[in-house]
Write a protein that binds this DNA or RNA. Sequence first.
DNA 1: GATGCGCTTTAAATGC
DNA 2: GCATTTAAAGCGCATC
Lengths: 88, 88, 88, 88
Amino acid sequence: MAETENSSDVIGGIAAEALQQYVDRIERLEDEKKALSEDIKQVYSEAKSTGFDVKILRKIIGLRKVEEQERQEQEELIDLYKRALGMV
Amino acid sequence: MAETENSSDVIGGIAAEALQQYVDRIERLEDEKKALSEDIKQVYSEAKSTGFDVKILRKIIGLRKVEEQERQEQEELIDLYKRALGMV
Amino acid sequence: MAETENSSDVIGGIAAEALQQYVDRIERLEDEKKALSEDIKQVYSEAKSTGFDVKILRKIIGLRKVEEQERQEQEELIDLYKRALGMV
Amino acid sequence: MAETENSSDVIGGIAAEALQQYVDRIERLEDEKKALSEDIKQVYSEAKSTGFDVKILRKIIGLRKVEEQERQEQEELIDLYKRALGMV
DNA sequence: GATGCGCTTTAAATGC
DNA sequence: GCATTTAAAGCGCATC
C-alpha cells in the first residue's frame, strides 16, 4: 500500500476515517446501553433489598409492557378507521 | 387494614408507593435503553446509505467486542493467579 | 374425526405419533446433555481434589473459549471482505 | 525459571501436564455438549417444518420435565418414610 | 409488498 | 448472590 495512507485515506476502497467514526459512534451508544442495563439491574437489586420479590416485579413490568402494546395497537386501529373514514 | 388506604399505604402487605416508584424508575430506564437501540439501528442505516456493508460493519464491532472480552479475561486471570500466589 | 383414534391418528388436528417421536428424541438428547454436564462438574471436582483452583481453571477454559471465538470472528470477517470484494 | 521446564514440569507450583489434561477433558466434554445442543435445535427445526409449533413443543417438554421432577420427589419421600419405618 | 425464517440479542430461570 | 444456561423477542433477510 501507499506509504502515506492514513486514517483519512481510502484503504482498499474503504473510506477509513468515515468507518472509524461509525464504529466509534456505535460503540459509544452500546456502552451507554450497557450502562443502562446495569442501572436497571441495580434498581431491581435495590427493590429486592427493600423486600420486594424481583421475579414478581419483573412479571409486573412485563405485563404492563404488553398492555401498553395492546393499547397502542388499539390506537393504531382507531387511527386506521379514521383514515378510512376521512376523519384525519 | 386502614379504611383510607391510598398509594402511600401498605396494600395486602405491599408498600404500594415504593413499588410504584420502582416500577417507574425501571420503565424509564428501559425507555432510554430502547431509544439507544433505535439510535444504533439508525447509525447502521446511515452507514449503509454511505456505502458501507452493514454486515461487515457488524462483524468488525463484534470482533472488537470479543477482543475486549479477551483482554478482560486475561486481566482477571492474572489477578486470580496473583491472589492464588498470595501476591495481593 | 375417526371413531378409533389412537396415537397414530390425528388428534385435534395434531399428528400424535409424530409428536410423540419428536418429544422422545428431544428428551433423549437432553438426557445425554445433562449427563455430560454432570461429567464436567465431576472433572472440575476431581481437579479440585488434586489441588487445582477451580476458579482459575474455569477462567482458563473461558479464556481459551473467547480466543477461539476471536479466531472464528476474524476468519468470518476475512471471508466477508473477500465476498464484498468479489474474491470468492 | 528453569531453562528445561516443559509441560510435564511444575511451573510456578503448577503441575502443568495434569492441568493440560483437565483442560482437555473439560473442553472435549463441552464440545460434545454443544453438539447435543445443536442436535436438539435441529430436531425442533425438523418438527417445525413438519408443522408443529416450536414454542408449544418447548412448553410441553418443560411441563413433562417438572412432572418428572415431582414424581421423583414423591418417590424420594416414600423412600424416606420407608427408611424411617425400617422398611429398607 | 407481505410473509416467513433464521440469527442475534435480551430476558428469565436455574444451580452452585 | 452470582454465573451459567435456557427461553423469548426483535430484527434483518430472502423469498414469493
